[in-house]
Structures are given as C-alpha cells and as structure tokens.
C-alpha cells in the first residue's frame, strides 16, 4: 500500500484518483436510464403519436376542405401530423418532460442521500453539476426529438408521405423542401426548452424535493404563458421566457420568417446562461445537509 501512497502524495489523493475522471457521462446516463420515471416518460412520448393516430382514425371523418387549421390538416400526411403532434405537445408535455429530467437530477440524489457520497468520493462539485447537466440536457433533447420523429413515422405509416399543407393558407410545400426545415424546428424546440431546463436545474440544486424542482419550473411556464396573453403588457411580453415558444411555426410557412425564432433563441439563451451560472455558484458554496 505504502509505495502507492507515496506515489500519490503529490495531490494527496488516493492512487488512481483524478478529479477529471470522476462521474463519467456513461455512468451517469446508466444511473438515470434505469429509473422508472425515465422509462415511463419515454414510453409516453413514443406512444403519444400512435394514440393520436388512433384518435384521428376513430374520430368521425370530416371532409371539410375549407378548414385550414393545423389540427384539421394533421391527417394530410406524415409531415403535417408531426407538426401537429409537436404543436400540441410543445406547450406542456415536453415542458414537463424537460423539467422532469433537469429538475429531478440533483434533487433526487439529495433525497436518496446518495449525493453526499458522490461528493465525498470526491466528485468535485462543479464537475458533478456539469456531468449531471449534460446528461439531463441530453435526456431532454432526446425527449424533444423523439416525439416529432415518432410522430413523423406514425403519421407517415398512417396517412402517407405527402407534401406539407400550410395551416391558414392551405398552400402545399414539397416534402423535400420541408425536411431540413423540420430539423430547424426540432432544434428550435430544443433551444426554447432551455429556459425550463435551466430553471428546473437551478431549483434542483436548491432543494432535495424532486417534485418541488419539477413543479417550480412547470409553474413558471404556466405563469409566463398567462402573462403573455395579456396584450396590455405590449412589447414587454417579448422578454417572457415562453413568448417565442411557438415561433417555430414561422419556419414552416411558405416564406419562412426566422426573426421571431432568432429573438426566441436570444431570450432563451439569456435566461438559461444566467440560471445555470446561478446554479453552479449556489452549489459550489452550498452546505449539503440532506
């Protein structure tokens, strides 16, 4: 034992220990993946498009050609269906999913008391947060991506591969043109959920109640969506974290308008960077008592 100990006296650490090797991403992914709530959430996200397909198939067929709402156009084809699925889930289901993955990650370790053993291992605090944030964002990204992709698959199998019909004007855009835009849409949906993710993460660092962190982040989204409906607030609304969440619809228009999405990215990044910095600052000096 002593030769090894001697060799490692430099940093005073145990043999083989290096701060940069602690809590590898692979380990954290596996630790989170086997959790029931992870599996249930992904199961739900994967099943939802099929549920919608069944709902559209069972519901009374409406041959209303004049109606050009997104919901009425959902059966036009796989792309229309995927856009519909994203629009109905982005405002709440995906918010909950993202809040769950990011809000639960540190708080649940605290509630299981495993957090103190990780910190005493020791996993340096900033590294623990970094690894957990990366994995939580990875799961969130997977959640946001998997739903439209599954909807694309389900919609294509159920309604065929057709050009996309734009809500409102009823114009057709060739599927090949829209596919890259669809990637932009999913990317934007990811970025716009960053605020929820970072707020949930900040709350997660501050509490040992996972539900509190998830609920707090979802609560903020609800408050923000209520405020953005108040037109009297005028341009102040542009700085609400959820204001631009539906701006991705502009990318599917015949003349895509990215200005709203750019603003949305700016607002989202602004909030997220500050919230995440706060999370790191807070956790670095925090007394871990749970």
């Amino acid at each position: 034992m002593s030769p090894l100990t001697q060799k490692s006296q430099d940093l005073g650490q145990a043999p083989g220990y290096a701060p940069g090797r602690t809590l590898p991403l692979r380990v954290e992914i596996l630790r989170q993946f086997k959790r029931r709530r992870t599996l249930v959430m992904f199961g739900l996200l994967l099943a939802l498009p099929w549920l919608l397909v069944v709902a559209f198939q069972l519901g009374p067929q409406r041959g209303d050609q004049g109606s050009l709402r997104l919901s009425d156009l959902a059966t036009q084809g796989g792309l229309n269906f995927a856009a519909f699925a994203l629009s109905v889930s982005a405002s709440f289901l995906l918010v909950v999913a993202v809040a769950l993955f990011c809000g639960d990650t540190v708080a649940s370790e605290a509630s299981w008391s495993s957090l103190r053993y990780l910190l005493a291992a020791p996993v340096p605090r900033s590294r623990l947060l970094r690894q957990k944030l990366i994995v939580a964002l990875g799961y969130s990204a997977a959640a946001v991506t998997v739903l439209p992709l599954m909807a694309l698959l389900a919609g294509t199998l159920a309604f065929g591969w057709h050009d996309i019909r734009v809500p409102g004007t009823g114009e057709l855009i060739p599927a090949a043109d829209v596919l890259p835009k669809f990637a932009v849409v999913i990317g934007y949906a990811l970025v716009s959920q960053l605020v929820v993710a970072s707020l949930a993460f900040l709350l997660s660092v501050g509490t040992d109640s996972p539900l509190g962190a998830v609920g707090g982040a979802v609560g903020l989204v609800i408050v923000s969506s209520i405020l953005q409906a108040v037109e009297a607030l005028g341009s102040l609304r542009e700085f609400l974290p959820t204001f631009w969440n539906a701006a991705w619809l502009d990318a599917l228009a015949p003349q895509p308008d990215y200005s709203g999405m750019i603003k949305g990215v700016a607002v989202s990044v602004t909030y997220s960077v500050i919230l995440i910095a706060l999370a790191f600052r807070r956790f670095r000096r925090k007394d871990v008592v749970s």
């Binding site: 940093l11 005073g12 650490q13 145990a14 220990y17 701060p19 008391s113 103190r116 053993y117 910190l119 005493a120 291992a121 020791p122 996993v123 340096p124 605090r125 900033s126 590294r127 670095r284």
Partner: peptide
C-alpha cells in the same frame, strides 16, 4: 469541498 484527499476517506454518515 471536492478536495482530492477525500479520495483516501471512506465514509458512512447519517444513513
């Protein structure tokens, strides 16, 4: 917090 020397410490505290 996170001092490398903690790697030479094994602990079981408060459950």
């Amino acid at each position: 917090p996170g001092a490398p020397v903690l790697s030479r410490l094994g602990s079981f505290v408060e459950g």
